[in-house]
Write a protein that binds this DNA or RNA. Structure first.
Length: 297
DNA sequence: GCACAGGTAGATT
DNA sequence: AATCTACCTGTG
């Protein structure tokens, strides 16, 4: 059974559009829309349902047996206590009309605080893939190589995608590359396999990397096979709360060319421009610009 | 049938 | 150092 719906303490108001963009806009890959307008998703060993009520409050519900733990985990995951609105307000929207427009289109958009290792796995799957397909890959990885998550059949009926947790890197190190390929990973299977072996030989490497200053952490993530500048920035932004990271993908390249006159700029040049122009919360700006650009096309 | 996708690595200028 | 390609595979 699920716990009753209740508002999340200290969460800022938002619309259902913003909720959808936050959960399914490319920063997380384990959220699924339900026909009643709510969302169900998982991270670590948590499963939670979310929805927006008529007063624009975020409401949550979790499996009844573990409600207290779920609430604490959700407060962290949602980054409820960090007053994201203040950071959004600190972006240079007053002097940047396009940014102002992107902010207005999706008020309350958040950067989630996902587990570092899971974020790394998700974005290693993301190379040249669309969100739907990345969700499919992570669902298969979880189902075949992760620990059981929703064991109660009545709960499991709510989402066929969340029967298991994502595998840990420790678990992935024991999975043959062929088995990874069977999860529709394609050429990404080789990278993930080698990264898992790399991490298995270096206990504590991932946690130590997460704790480093931004630029050092970014460089160190780049040592992993299959991790370049874009994936490293996504992992730091969405999996380590480093809001100064400014991931540059094809959408952001297009957005920055169109609205900031950066036609012909290389990804690393655009990333540098973004960090300088948008400041310490550049990654938050990136998420708004990304949402705008995807909607516009 | 075939181009293309929310990148990266390795080869080739 | 900058630029081009192959890499898997589902989708249109």
């Amino acid at each position: 059974m699920w716990s009753d719906w209740q508002p999340l303490a200290s969460a800022e108001p938002l619309t259902s559009v913003t909720l959808a963009e936050t959960l399914d806009g490319g920063q997380a890959f384990r959220w699924h829309a339900r026909s009643d307008g709510s969302w169900i998703g998982a991270w670590s060993d948590q499963v939670v349902r979310l929805r927006v009520n008529s007063k624009n409050q975020l409401e949550w519900s979790a499996p009844a047996a573990r409600t207290a733990a779920a609430e604490a985990a959700l407060v962290h995951y949602w980054d409820s206590t960090s007053a994201l609105a203040l950071k959004t307000d600190a972006l240079p929207w007053r002097s940047d009309p396009h940014l102002a427009r992107a902010l207005a289109a999706c008020p309350g958009l958040r950067i989630l605080r996902q587990p570092f290792g899971e974020t790394l796995l998700g974005f290693m799957c993301s190379a040249a893939k669309q969100i739907v397909q990345i969700k499919q890959m992570t669902a298969l990885l979880a189902e075949r190589h992760g620990r059981p998550l929703l064991t109660d059949p009545a709960l499991r009926a709510h989402s066929p995608f969340l029967s298991h947790q994502l595998p840990t890197w420790e678990q992935l190190a024991e999975v043959p590359e062929t088995a990874l390929r069977a999860c529709k990973l394609g050429f990404r299977a080789r990278h993930i396999h080698h990264t898992a072996r790399f991490l298995a030989e270096r206990p504590g490497w991932l946690a130590a990397t997460e704790a480093l200053p931004y630029s050092e952490a970014r460089a160190r993530l780049g040592e992993l096979p299959g991790v370049g500048p874009k994936v490293a920035d996504c992992v730091l932004l969405f999996g380590a709360g480093r809001l100064e990271a400014f991931p540059v993908d094809v959408w952001i390249i297009a957005a920055m060319a169109r609205h900031y006159g950066l036609s012909g700029w290389k990804p690393e040049q655009v990333a540098h421009f973004g960090r300088v122009h948008f400041g310490p919360f550049a990654g938050l700006a990136q998420q708004y610009l990304f949402a705008w650009e995807r909607k516009a096309s």
